[in-house]
Design a protein around this nucleic acid. Structure first.
Lengths: 246, 246
DNA sequence: CGACCTATTGATACGTATCAACCCGAGTGG
DNA sequence: CCACTCGGGTTGATACGTATCAATAGGTCG
């Protein structure tokens, strides 16, 4: 499913070249990054790292989907990040990982050892600028997610989640709204439940409810057809005047 | 209640000198910051800025408490940030504000016009480094908050909130746990409810419950005495092995 | 003193969790 | 080729936690 590594071992042909931490780098800087990067792949279901692990490596997601989650002892789990291609894993300046990272599909990472990467942050301001921009974007996303978790109903949560995936998936230059669209769900019902602060049963019931009301159609477990994205947006409880998210 | 502006108009005597965006600056850089900063004060209850406003100014909280919140049309509101001294308001590179910002106590801000501040970010890497560090800290805090909102019970939410305030309030060098402590609540029951994804009535009931169980004592509406912080920590549902947050 | 705001307490409703059964497609092995 | 099992998903009955609606209490200010 993933491109073989050989196809992307040169940064200039990398699929996340223009969205990841390296987005602003010029050719010279890219050469430097290229020199210290290495790829690592994980198969679906595999644990990439666990809370408390030493954080020796930071990485960008090149392909596939991973999750960031936080758990309490009694088993309750909250997904706190959905890592899609171009998203960054790990944090410069911190020695241990705060969250569990899991590959939900086959995943390929573009990795850097943390120490040299930190040194590089200082030398190449373009990387640091992009890191800051990405961190602030994630912060905004996290805050929207807090509104969802704290104040939205189960149905609104599901609709919001579908909109989120639709937005992240669609061509960055393309329009999103106003027409039929197929949404490929990157995660299972259980992961969705953990993302939305719900149980798997409630997630399932809300899918059924939205289907019966004609808002969505289901095509297998991992694919949703949305006849009218505007209707779905209304169900999500989000302001229409929210401004462009990407 | 606040120090008069004249007492802090020199950066070197500023109370947030070592925690705000300027924390890593040397004396020369401080002079440059000093040259373009200006103070602005708001009284308790005042709106500092609203969602959609042009973001011409960015600022650090010097004293007082402000909130960042997100609302949906029907009145549901979620607090997405609690801004205490040294916290930063606004985002370089973005032209409009995403959240409503309100002063909950009298607040003094150290302001910069956004454009010159952005230029300064490029010139003074120390500021950008610190901005990145602070953004990542906030991201971690937001993720912890997502766990709270999505998975914790009302009682755990209240206990977690009290622990959060205790941690932010205590002397940065001082120990927190193991002894009696008085926590001054910076916000009203309503704001707490909006922070925790609860109603004001539930917040009140949980306070009563924790009081009846001897976990806390109430001294007026804005002050909580905690006989044993360890007990409160247990009530919060957080792992004890969570590592130091600050 | 009365008006008002914030917080508390009470009665009840409602949404989601919980517990349990069932369905379905994919492997797997006889 | 079919029976079996297994994991993920759906559906149903019921329980429980928190929201909602309503009344009361306490403090502050005019």
């Amino acid at each position: 499913m993933n491109k073989p590594l050989t196809a992307i071992d040169n940064c200039s042909s990398c699929p996340i070249r223009h969205r990841a931490v390296c987005a602003r780098c010029d050719d010279d800087e890219l050469v430097e990054l290229n020199g210290i990067k290495f790829y690592k792949s994980y198969s679906a279901g595999q644990t990439i790292a666990m809370r408390g692990d030493a954080l020796d490596v930071v990485a960008s997601v090149v392909s596939g989907t991973a999750t960031l989650e936080r758990a309490i002892e009694d088993g309750r789990t909250q997904l706190v990040g959905l890592l899609l291609p171009s998203d960054f894993i790990g944090r410069p300046g911190r020695a241990t990982l705060q969250y569990d990272v899991t590959a939900v599909t086959d995943v390929t990472l573009c990795c850097f050892y943390r120490k040299p990467f930190e040194a590089l942050l200082v030398r190449i301001p373009h990387v640091q600028e992009r890191m800051l921009e990405m961190a602030l974007d994630e912060l905004d996303a996290a805050r929207d997610w807090m509104l969802l978790l704290g104040r939205k109903t189960a149905r609104e949560k599901i609709a919001s989640f579908l909109m989120l995936i639709a937005k992240r998936t669609v061509h960055p230059d393309g329009r999103v709204l106003g027409n039929t669209s197929r949404i490929e769900l990157p995660i299972s019902r259980e992961a969705m439940a953990n993302f939305l602060g719900l149980t798997i049963e409630t997630v399932s019931r809300q899918f059924t409810g939205l289907r019966k009301d004609g808002v969505i159609e289901l095509d297998g477990n991992r694919s949703v057809i949305v006849p009218d994205l505007e209707t779905l947006l209304l169900e999500s409880g989000d302001d229409s005047d929210g401004g462009p998210l990407i």
